[in-house]
Amino acid sequence: MADEQAMSSFWRGVKTGFPFLFVAVPFAMLFGVLATEAGLTLFETMSFSFVVIAGAAQFTALSLLNENAPAIVALISAIAVNMRLVMYSAALTPYLGPLPLWKRVLLAYFLVDQTYASSQLEFEARPAMTLTQRFAFFLGVMIPICPPWFLGTWFGAWAGEAIDMDSGLDFALPIAFIAMIGPALRTPAHRVAALVSVIFALGFAWLPFNFGLIVGGLAGMAAGAEAERRMSA
């Protein structure tokens, strides 16, 4: 019975993650193409995707290295882009923290924007889910996102410059994120958080190393928490 429920959570995860397949694959291919053009071997390109497994940070590091920036600058910029992962980890801990260590290691490895956001929304919407069901759901979401990321990288690196990357493709990623934001704005506090984060992110967009993202994120979280506190007071 418990297994059956876990299986249904797993499949619901696969279904939830499915649309992101169409974002992950083109982006992974683009990374493969760009890495190959920058002179990386297939092994180096694949190692990049397997070891780092974070699209935005990979693009940042690769483009800076390609522009002959010092390795340390490429590294720090890419880490700054990934600082948001700390907040994802913190946000999922109340839901998944009690899992055994090896499962938490596995979750951490596959923690990317889409697996995080889909899981958070699901766990909020279904508070009755058990720990096993939550873990199964996360793995389900991961399936159409992470393995395609690796395969797409490989295909892009293999096909190299043969692929013509359409110019509108850059916008698939923002659209995918925006699509997740709309349904997530369930309460006034959520809407306040999103609005404040946009204002701060734009106002601090001039900060180096993408720190405007962190400023916007923290401001939004503080605003959301404050709005919730006032409403419940």
């Binding site: 958070q120 997740m180 934001i181 997530a184 704005l185 959520h190 939004g220 605003a223 959301g224």
Partner: peptide, 8 residues
Amino acid sequence: YTAVSILP
């Protein structure tokens, strides 16, 4: 409020 802050 992490998701609705970081993503926007």
